[in-house]
Simulated scan of single mutants.
Amino acid sequence: MAEENELKRYAIFNRSSRKVVLSGTETAEEAKEAEKQEITVPLPPTFKDIHEQRVHMKQRLAAGFRLLAKFGWDEGVAGHATCRDPEYPDLFWVNAFGQHFGTIKASDLILVDHEGNIVRGNRLVNKAAFVIHGAVHDARPDVVCAVHTHSMYGKTFSTLGRPLLPISQDACAFYDDHSVYDKFGGVVFDAEEGERLVSSLGPKNKAIILQNHGLLTTGETIDAAFWWFVSMERCCQSQLLAEAAAINGYHDLRVIPDEIARGTWKNVGTARSGYAQFQPMLEIIIKEQPDCLL
């Protein structure tokens, strides 16, 4: 009920009491049946068992990789996304080292523990993926999925060493909900660097800008984590364009006032919003590349 009430913020799903017959397309009886149809609400699914949930999550993760590839956000062997296993929360699924995002299927994912050992799968795992994501999943039990790639505008914006400004409705999704890690120490190979990164992410933020590196987003669902990455990358692009177009750079930008930005976040920045926003992209990538579910 709480989720349905939240949906009422931005979607109409109450059935009208008005009785009409659409001439030429339905009879009076068909009109009565149409009025009885239940209006579906896009909520996260529930599962009969752990196996069903695990299959669903791995398929979502694989579809997310395909989407990243569609946008051109792959960069050699860099970039990774993980999801926490629903049965064993101290284990997480991750992409294999060196596999192109555009070829990843659900069955290709590797299961690893927080000590960096492979539990299921027979391919290598990017060590930076383990260090970064292992630290995030260990420190933040609320994080089901984390996404990081070296996308063009994210890594470009990261060189500024500052957070996104609330200059658009979309950017308000990250208002007071992301941080900047301002210490680049090279490729993230040691546990201490992972711990510093997680400390910078904080206990509640959903995203972090890694200075001189790129973006990392998290979510309570796989859907939300991938949507936040897509949205944050585009917000970085938007702000870079706005600053380039302004005579005095970011000093000329019309920043949304704090109170309004905070109120807008309640509509576009919640976990529920992130889940809903991802559904159209998920639908099209699965339709275009159904083999990702295998």
Rank of each mutant, 00 (worst) to 15 (best):
Q277M: 12
G134S: 06
K32I: 11
D74C: 13
C83F: 13
N205Y: 01
G274I: 01
N5K: 10
H148T: 09
K48P: 01
V125F: 04
C172E: 03
D108G: 06
A34H: 11
A135L: 08
I256R: 01
A28H: 13
D258K: 09
Q237C: 12
Q99L: 12
L124A: 12
L67S: 06
A191H: 09
R120N: 12
A242M: 09
G219M: 04
V230K: 08
F101C: 07
D190K: 10
L7N: 08
E26F: 07
F97A: 06
A28Q: 12
F13P: 04
N267F: 10
A135E: 12
V136W: 00
L282V: 07
V119P: 06
T25C: 13
V119Q: 08
K206Y: 04
V112N: 02
V268R: 02
L216P: 00
H251G: 01
R254C: 03
N14L: 13
G76Q: 09
F184A: 04
L111S: 10
L215R: 00
I284Q: 14
F92T: 07
W73E: 11
H137P: 06
V94H: 00
W228E: 01
K287F: 10
E87W: 10
G154W: 01
E115F: 11
W228V: 00
P257I: 06
K58R: 15
L210M: 12
R15K: 13
V230A: 14
V180S: 05
G154C: 07
H178T: 02
R120C: 11
V77P: 01
F130C: 03
G24A: 03
G79A: 09
Q239T: 00
I50Y: 13
H100G: 12
R60I: 13
G274Y: 00
M1T: 14
I12F: 15
K36M: 09
V255D: 03
E52G: 06
R162F: 04
L240W: 00
D223Q: 11
K70R: 15
S199G: 14
T25H: 11
C172D: 05
D74I: 06
T40N: 11
V198F: 04
R66G: 13
K183R: 15
W93I: 10
V125Q: 03
D138L: 13
G134R: 01
A135P: 07
H80S: 03
I285G: 04
W227I: 05
H150M: 08
L282Q: 07
E35F: 09
S158C: 12
P42E: 08
N126K: 04
I110C: 05
T149V: 14
F184P: 00
G194L: 04
H80G: 02
R234V: 06
I222A: 07
M1C: 10
Y10S: 14
I39W: 09
V20A: 08
V198K: 01
A261P: 00
Q53D: 12
T27A: 11
P166S: 03
V20H: 10
D74F: 07
C145N: 10
G76D: 10
R254E: 05
